[in-house]
């Protein structure tokens, strides 16, 4: 069964010590309002825990949130952990305060969206619908 035909299940991940939670909470609600299932693990998570949850819960997509400027590290760890747990087919999207210079790196890693503050919620919701309908390719990026 194609992923797009069942209810979209989103794991929202905040990895490390970033405390800025407002964006993650607002998106969690927007995703639910759009008919998606949301698993939000809260703050202070490890990338491995986020990836493992996504695999165990058969998630359609992982949405990473970070406001410390460290998304490149968090995304790489998450993608690596997904590989480790056999979840490389799960697309990863990201948002928060992401330095512009990190965008090419994230795209190459296969992490899409990479939205900043003020992005209309429907843009993010539509993006999730898009990435969960296709087999999103992930490029190899050296550490």
């Amino acid at each position: 069964m194609a992923v797009g035909q069942k209810t979209i299940r989103v794991v929202i991940g905040k990895v490390g010590c970033d405390i800025h939670e407002r964006g993650a909470l607002i998106l969690a609600r927007a995703f639910r309002d759009a008919g998606m299932e949301v698993i939000y693990l809260g703050r202070y998570q490890t990338a491995e825990a986020v990836a493992k949850t996504a695999v165990d819960e058969d998630a359609s997509v992982i949405a990473l949130s970070d406001h410390t400027g460290s998304m490149r590290y968090i995304a790489k760890e998450t993608v690596d952990a997904l590989k480790k747990f056999g979840g490389s087919d799960i697309p990863v999207i990201a948002g928060g305060l992401i330095p512009k210079k990190d965008l090419p790196y994230l795209e190459k890693l296969g992490v899409t969206g990479n939205y900043g503050p003020g992005t209309p919620l429907e843009t993010v919701v539509n993006h999730i619908r898009e990435v969960t309908e296709i087999d999103w390719p992930k490029g190899e990026v050296p550490g």
Binding site: V15, G16, C17, T68, I74, E77
Partner: peptide, 15 residues
């Protein structure tokens, strides 16, 4: 958390 704690790396020296 001290900087050598495994969860420190991502946000270390941020803020």
């Amino acid at each position: 958390l001290d900087p050598d704690h495994p969860s420190s790396w991502n946000a270390m020296l941020c803020g």
